[in-house]
Amino acid sequence: MKVLVTVKEVATVEDEFEIDGTAIDERFLGADLNEWDDYAIEAAVQLQEDGIADEVVTVTIGPEDAEQTIRQALAKGADRAIRVWDDALADVDLLDVGAKTELLQAVVEDEDPDLVLTGVQSGDDSFGATGVSLADAIDTQWAAVVNDLEVDPDAGTASVHRELEGGVEELTEIDLPAVLTIQTGINEPRYASLRGIRQAQRKPLDHQTLADLGVDDGAVDGDLELTDMYEPETETDVTVFEGSAEETAGDLADLLREKGVEA
C-alpha cells in the first residue's frame, strides 16, 4: 500500500511584528513544518513500520527554500518527496483551497496512492479544507479531524475516530482509498535521528512544475484576493501590570485576593 502525505512549510510570526501591505513584513517571519503535518508524517511512518504501507511519499507546494523543512519528513522515514512549484505560483499571495486541490489532484493522479494523509489545517492560513476538497476531486472517501486510525489493508477499510467538539469522538468506518485529515495528539511524532537526517540528504526530492503536472497556469489564480491585514482590536480593556516579576506578581496577587482567591 502506498501512502501520500501532504506537508507544508508554514510561516511563523515573531512576538513583535509589522505588517507590510497585506502581508507580515518578512523580517518578522520564520519557517517551520506545519504542526498538524508532523502528526500525519508520523502516522504514515508508523503504517510503514507495521508493514501496512510499503511506500511513503510526501508532497508539498512550496518554493525551493522549503526543501529543508520537507526533508524533515524524509529524515523521519518517508521514502521520497515531491515539491510542486512554478513561477506562476510565486506571484500568488493567497493560494486558495481550489488551487491547492487542483495541484494535489494532479500529483495524486500520477502517484495513485491508497491513502492520503493531510494535516487538519495549516497553522498560517488555517483554511482546514484542502484534504476534504482533494478527496472529492479525486473521487475517494475521506474523514476530517482524525485522532485515531487503524487500517485494514485486506478489507480495504480504515477505522477512524473523528474528534468532534466537546470531548466526543465519532467512530467511523471508511472504504479505501481515502483522504484523512490528521489531528494533533493522534500519536507522538518522533524526532529525526542523526542517521535519518544523513539518509534524507540522499533520498529523492523531485521538483514538478505546473507543466510537468499538466495543470493550467490559470488554475492557481483562484477567486480569493487578500485585500487587507491588520492587528485585531482587543475586546476588553486589559489592565497590564508593569514592573519587575516581583512587582507584577504582587499586584496580581492583590487582585486575585480581591477576587476571592486565598491561600
Binding site: 510570526v13 511584528f17 487578500l226 485585500t227 487587507d228 491585514m229 492587528e231
Partner: peptide, 8 residues
C-alpha cells in the same frame, strides 16, 4: 495574530 479581509 492578525485579521484579514478577503474578497471573492
Amino acid at each position: 495574530k492578525v485579521e484579514t479581509t478577503t474578497e471573492l
